[in-house]
């Protein structure tokens, strides 16, 4: 949008609207201060110890697990739409075309100016970042960590390597890999709802934790036992398991890597429809 459009009448209207919104919002926030109703969260907190030790993981991936699926889909859609805008999957009518599709060229790299030391440490740093990302996803249910963070850390490793080495990126996430891993991620997350649906009738019921005793003990231990931990808490000792939460997090991580990686890939290297091995210039 052109900023000059905001001059004159439009600008005045916009400022007045913003003022009204601001005053309304501030006054209601002031009224809410100290008066926030706990509502459902009180019940969630009472039940927390039954699932993952990391309460937030339980909130995000169990109580509100289906919300998180759609949020994950938001990231996926964001990536697909961004790549679409760059040129991946642009469609035209077979018998009629108005104009050639808009495409954007890849960025130009000038990696010569980087110092030798940076180039030397680039690869180990990127590999360590990858390991760190993997560690973070395995810590989803016990401590701060999870799929979102893992995905972001791993794609930042990819971006770091791209900055250091340009087209010769040692972390060579190809387009097929990125799209595949994104599909496995979102598809996997979606399908993790299936065991609960088929056995209890509730989509994405946590069959591993099974706190409401709706599924058979066999299924409960298949999904639950691998992640079972001893929780020494003030209230006593509990042997609880996050069930499908760690698996969901891995799927989530895959999806985020696929999505953000695809955005980086498309914006850095542009999009062309040739197969990858031809693009690399016979390498």
């Amino acid at each position: 949008m052109d900023p000059s459009e905001l001059r004159g009448k439009r600008g005045v209207i916009a400022v007045i609207a913003l003022l009204i919104i601001g005053v309304g919002l501030m006054s209601s926030l002031e009224r809410l201060a100290g008066n926030v109703s706990p509502g459902i969260s009180r019940i969630y907190n009472i039940l927390a110890y039954l699932v993952a030790p990391n309460n937030i993981a339980t909130w995000v991936y169990d109580w509100r697990g289906f919300d998180t699926l759609i949020e994950t889909a938001v990231i996926y859609v964001g990536a697909v739409v961004s790549a679409l805008a760059i040129g991946r999957g642009v469609v035209q009518m077979k018998h009629y075309s108005e104009e050639a599709p808009v495409t954007s060229p890849p960025l130009e790299y000038r990696t010569e100016s980087l110092t030798v030391i940076l180039k030397l440490f680039g690869l180990p740093a990127a590999i360590l970042l990858l390991s760190y990302g993997i560690m973070v996803v395995t810590a989803s249910s016990t401590s701060g960590g999870g799929g979102f963070q893992c995905g972001v850390i791993m794609t930042s490793a990819y971006l770091l390597a791209a900055i250091f080495y340009g087209k010769e990126n040692p972390i060579r996430f190809g387009k097929r890999f990125l799209i595949g891993i994104g599909a496995v991620g979102l598809g996997g997350y979606t399908l993790l709802g299936l065991p609960g649906f088929l056995t209890s009738g509730y989509w994405q019921y946590n069959v591993g934790a099974d706190i409401w005793n709706l599924v058979s003990p066999t299924l409960h231990s298949i999904f639950g036992d691998p992640f079972r931990l001893t929780l020494y808490l003030q209230e006593g000792v509990f042997y609880s398991t996050p069930g499908i939460i760690p698996l969901i997090n891995i799927a989530e991580a895959f999806n985020v890597i696929g999505a953000i990686g695809l955005i980086y890939f498309a914006f850095l290297y542009g999009w062309s429809e040739q197969p990858e091995d031809q693009e690399k210039g016979g390498k």
Binding site: T138, D225, P226, I250
Partner: peptide
Amino acid sequence: MPGDITPFIISIVL
């Protein structure tokens, strides 16, 4: 507990 080792195995696979 099994939960002690599973993250290690997953991390190797990933």
